[in-house]
Design a protein around this nucleic acid. Structure first.
Length: 816
DNA sequence: CACGCTCTGCCTGCG
DNA sequence: GCAGAGCGTG
């Protein structure tokens, strides 16, 4: 009897939770309610991944392990259980009033850690958490951020334990490159034989795997190539140490080292974090995997969300094995798959499933939808990249007109940034508004880097790379010779460049340059003393004035105008930064700003509001969705790229995942484009259709041929081979079609140079119902007119020749 | 030391 | 096809 009551109580409780979370599907709900132990949520594209993540965090904070716990109050009565059973008929808000009685071991917000990859994702999680809680501060207490920001928060407290001073600097990829090149020069290593880019990638991947310079040297052994890189790695590490700086990889690496080497610190964080959640787990590398296990090592409540099929960042160190081997790495892990897709049509999902199904190394998911079949995927062949670009613009214009779509409904996603140029040109000629994402980032512009380098040097005089960057910018007549002398003295005295310059008059070797060098350090000292007395933007103005940087740009005149504007833009970023942070109470220091600046990428991110077609790489489109997606350049040699065709099977699988990501960005319509021939890196190539397109089920596709050949054939089909010599009796007798003929599979085209403005004009004047005359077919009546590319498909019922479909520009119809 | 010419090499890119 | 790097000259 007692046992029965308990069972009824638990069932009633779970039914109530199920009803309140009824807006989620079964799998999503299970993920939300599973709070204890390692949990892997395999979330397919568009399956509500972020929703689950956010709702689960909110659930744990509010109710703890309320759903799955078998805990029952000891004073359970028949009456109470009956009440609970009846409560199922109440409304959701009413039930929510009851739920607090089931709270079991809830988690205080500050013991919750949520890690994402991008600032954008972190921002989205934060804002969605705020809407989950009425109390904003509750959401604010949650530790949520990127891997790097979370690690920085830890390193800011304990950085000294791994040998970094308080104000350590973060080196970005450009600083790293300069440093590595400098080391290579010093070690006399030929840049031709060892391209710095490859060296940097190798070092970065070593760091991703938690390999130190010593580890790397051991692994390299006697291998000539690797041991040279090991030497560079070692020199680079020493340089970073001397500059009191870390690169991005180091931020993770040193945090792991800190936790591994300091049991007290590890134990503090393990006790602190009761729940750890990692987003985009398929993108994690070895270091991040180790970090996740360390931080969650106290409670073992590690939840990871990801999609092995969307792992597209192997090239920057991600190991798909983290997600594939999660259950092996964490015993008793729960696996939940989210396969219901709320984004795309059935056709799009069938296509995506068809493609990804060709991969072997995957957990195996199959997306499905309760939604509609939708439009077929258009597979369009164009003559060249010009035709490809134009047809995209034409289709956008047509769909905007006929389907009432907004421009922001369209995205053009390509494999490489270089593909954007042609499409941009076509868009520029039209009136279609567009934006291009990617390319040079704001923070990568030279003037921005220079300006920030001044600030960084002011904060950290030891910063060698930043000093070298701006020492002669503007020109101060401090050339390579002088700097080499300074560097030599610094080496000998085992001190920093700045220190030597500061005491330049003490070194005979510096001779006449001493005064110039001292003038420079004096300026930096002067600015350093101003640092804490002025508000940040005013201080920045002062730096730009005293350094002469602003004057240099002004003197540069018209060509430097944009740079000057960018400097002002940076200042307004600062004003914004000061404005937002002071609201939260702290007065932001220069150090705070620089850290934020190093960690937070550009502000000029994708703005969903502006009504414009958006162009970007498939990589940057991950996580986004659009009603209509164009995929130009679907050709073997472009996508998959040549280097992936030559590479191993793993590379091809990654490339295929990228194709999967591309297709699943679309909600309603995909247009795949390829060309007969195109100019690719200055060479004319005729690529075969992408192998990935061949993996899409044929019934998902509808083909269009806009090549010259295709158009010629279409013209033959619609207007007859040699119309003038064909007897009219050859054609069937007049007959109205019983049902409108579908034009789907008809090959249609855009106007060729032959299409004169005159032809277009006369075509535009035509309407269904008009009587027309054709050179060959004689008189007839227009049944319908459909836009096709830039042209029109006109269906005419001729009195003698029967019903024909004609391309407007070829048909030369005359209105009667 | 600054400018201009030629040569090369080229995918994707968060923090 | 184009941009950035490197080299040579005024």
């Amino acid at each position: 009897m007692e046992k029965n009551l308990t069972a009824r109580y638990l069932a009633a409780k779970r039914a109530l939770f199920d009803k309140v979370y009824g807006d989620l599907n079964d799998m999503q709900r299970q993920a939300v309610f599973t709070t204890e132990g390692p949990l892997l949520v395999l979330a397919g594209a568009g399956s509500g991944k972020t929703t689950v993540l956010v709702r689960r965090i909110a659930f744990i904070i509010r109710y703890g392990n309320a759903y799955f716990t078998d805990f029952t109050p000891h004073n359970l009565t028949e009456e109470h259980v009956a009440d609970l059973e009846h409560a199922i008929h109440l409304s959701v808000p009413e039930i929510e009033q009851i739920l607090p009685e089931f709270i079991h071991d809830p988690c205080p917000p500050y013991r919750m850690l949520a890690i994402t990859f991008t600032n954008k994702a972190a921002g989205e999680i934060k804002s969605r958490l705020v809407t989950q809680f009425a109390d904003e501060t509750l959401a604010g207490d949650i530790w949520s951020g990127t891997f790097h920001s979370v690690c920085m928060r830890i390193l800011r407290t304990y950085g000294d334990r791994v040998g970094f001073g308080k104000g350590f600097t973060i080196y970005d990829t450009d600083d790293t490159k300069k440093a590595v090149v400098a080391i290579m020069k010093k070690l006399n290593i030929d840049e031709k034989q060892f391209p710095p880019k490859a060296v940097i990638t190798t070092i970065s991947h070593a760091k991703d795997k938690l390999m130190t310079a010593e580890d790397f040297a051991v692994e390299a052994g006697v291998d000539f190539r690797l041991s040279r890189i090991a030497a560079i790695y070692k020199g680079y590490e020493e340089l970073l140490r001397a500059s009191n700086a870390m690169d991005f990889d180091d931020i993770i690496l040193h945090t792991v080292r800190l936790l591994r080497e300091n049991p007290d610190v590890l134990s503090y964080y393990q006790r602190k974090f009761k729940y750890v959640c990692i987003d985009e787990y398929q993108d994690t590398n070895v270091a991040q995997f180790v970090l996740s296990s360390l931080l969650s090592g106290g409670s073992h409540n590690l939840m990871v969300v990801g999609d092995d099929d969307q792992s597209i960042y192997k090239f920057r160190g991600a190991t798909i094995e983290n997600i594939l081997g999660f259950d092996k790495a964490f015993k008793n892990a729960t696996l939940i798959k989210l396969e219901q897709n709320y984004r795309s049509t059935k056709t799009i999902l069938d296509a995506a499933n068809g493609v990804i199904g060709h991969n072997l190394g995957r957990k195996g998911k199959s997306l499905w939808t309760a939604g509609e079949v939708g439009e077929k995927i258009i597979l369009r062949k164009c003559e060249d990249q010009m035709g490809e670009s134009r047809s995209i613009v034409d289709t956008i214009r047509r769909m905007a007109e006929t389907q009432g779509r907004k421009y922001k409904d369209f995205a053009v996603l390509y494999r490489t940034n270089s593909q954007s140029a042609g499409i941009e040109r076509a868009l520029q000629r039209s009136t279609v508004p567009y934006r291009v994402l990617g390319g040079t980032r704001f923070s990568d512009r030279k003037e921005i880097r220079d300006a920030v380098a001044y600030l960084q040097l002011i904060c950290n005089h030891a910063d060698r790379e930043r000093l070298l960057r701006i020492i002669n910018e503007p020109r101060r007549k401090i050339g390579d010779k002088t700097l080499a002398a300074v560097a030599a003295i610094a080496e000998e005295q085992n001190t920093t460049l700045f220190e030597v310059m500061d005491r330049a008059d003490e070194f005979v070797a510096l001779g006449r340059s001493a005064a110039t060098l001292k003038a420079f350090t004096a300026m930096i000292h002067r600015l350093t003393s101003l640092m804490d007395t002025l508000p940040l933007p005013d201080f920045f103005d002062e730096v730009m004035e005293q350094s002469g940087y602003r004057q240099m740009l002004i003197d540069g005149g018209e060509p430097e105008k944009e740079r000057l504007e960018n400097i002002d833009e940076l200042k307004s970023n600062m004003m914004e930064y000061v404005g937002t942070t002071t609201e939260m109470g702290d007065i932001p220091s220069l150090v705070d700003f620089l850290e934020e600046y190093a960690l937070v990428a550009d502000v000029d991110k994708y703005d969903t509001e502006a009504d414009a077609v958006v162009l970007m790489t498939i990589h940057s489109a991950k996580g986004l969705e659009f009603p209509v997606v164009f995929l130009p350049g679907m050709e073997d040699g472009i996508f998959p790229g040549m280097q992936n065709i030559m590479g191993g099977a793993d590379d091809m699988e990654e490339e295929r995942r990228l194709a999967y990501v591309a297709i699943t960005r679309a909600r309603e319509q995909v247009v795949i484009l390829h060309t007969r021939s195109r100019i690719w890196y200055g060479q004319t190539v005729a690529n075969p259709l992408s192998r990935f397109v061949g993996e899409i089920p044929e019934e998902c596709l509808v083909r269009e041929d806009l090549t010259m050949e295709g158009l010629a054939k279409a013209a033959v089909v619609t207007t007859g081979v040699k119309p003038a010599t064909q007897p009219t009796s050859y054609y069937e007798r007049p007959r109205r079609p019983k049902t409108p003929v579908h034009t789907d599979r008809l090959t249609v085209g855009q106007p060729t140079p032959a299409a004169t403005a005159e032809a277009r004009q006369s075509m535009n004047a035509l309407n269904p119902g008009d009587r027309v005359i054709h050179a060959t077919f004689g008189e007839g009546e227009i049944l319908s007119i459909k836009p096709m590319g830039a042209d029109k498909l006109i269906e005419v019922m001729f009195d003698i020749a029967g019903t024909k479909k004609l391309m407007g520009t070829y048909a030369k119809l005359k209105k009667l």
